[in-house]
Design a protein around this nucleic acid. Structure first.
Length: 219
DNA sequence: CCCTGATTCGC
DNA sequence: GCGAATCAGG
């Protein structure tokens, strides 16, 4: 396969989104990360300036950057805008409020017995527990068993999630789901996973809890 | 080792 | 223009 306008478009999009060359290569398929990097350079869009939204960034250091003059000179905004309904882009992640319950909070105990605890990921959605029909019943373990600090940390970490799709997960990428599977706002953490565990450091801390904290949990 | 992007250069 | 091989790093 070659660099069709479509694929180039996707490439630009993902590159702007901060995806790595290898991630982009996987998503596009039929190309290696080298190919992606090569193309990125040929397109002149390297630097990857931290400006996301809309405007065409043009801040090249050395080489001249011919803006590829298109037929239309002053064509107004009406640029090809997909039928994307709305994307306010607020943090989709909003874990169930964790009341300040001064729980002692014993850091994950790698201790003797392997925690026989089901690593149940909390599917955190921005909305109410509204689950579209057909969903496998998202576990809502409620955060009352997780320390507020840990939760805050997780939220922080999730901002840097690699946002991988199912097929991009590997042996060493965090498989913690983020967002609502029923919407586009869904992906997997993707950060480096702890050796032998399916999740990254932050998510392991909320997925595997010491038995102690589960004990005497009322309700 | 795992991974990044950057460059080169034969095709 | 393309991208494998290679380089240079984290």
């Amino acid at each position: 396969m070659s660099w069709t306008d479509d694929r180039v478009e996707l490439l630009k999009k993902m590159w702007a989104d901060g995806k790595s060359a290898s991630q982009i290569a996987k998503e596009l398929g039929s190309v290696t990360r080298n190919a992606v990097i090569g193309k990125v350079h040929r397109l002149g869009l390297s630097s990857r300036t931290a400006d996301a939204a809309g405007a065409a960034p043009k801040a090249k250091p050395a080489v001249a950057e011919p803006p590829a003059a298109s037929p239309e000179s002053a064509a107004p905004a009406a640029k090809a805008a997909p039928a994307a309904p709305a994307k306010p882009k607020p943090e989709p992640v909003t874990p169930p409020a964790a009341e300040a319950t001064p729980e002692p909070e014993a850091q994950a105990t790698p201790a003797p017995a392997p925690v026989p605890d089901p690593p149940r990921p909390v599917i955190i959605t921005g909305r109410r527990p509204v689950v579209p029909a057909g969903q496998p019943l998202p576990p809502q373990p409620s955060a009352n068993e997780i320390s507020p600090e840990a939760l805050a940390n997780v939220r922080e970490v999730e901002k840097t999630a690699k946002k991988l799709h199912l097929m991009e997960l590997t042996e060493r990428t965090c498989k913690w789901p983020i967002g609502d599977p029923a919407t586009e706002e869904f992906w997997f953490c993707g950060l480096p996973s702890v050796a032998g565990k399916p999740y990254c450091e932050a998510h392991v801390s909320v997925a595997f809890q010491p038995m102690q904290s589960r004990r005497d949990r009322r309700r």
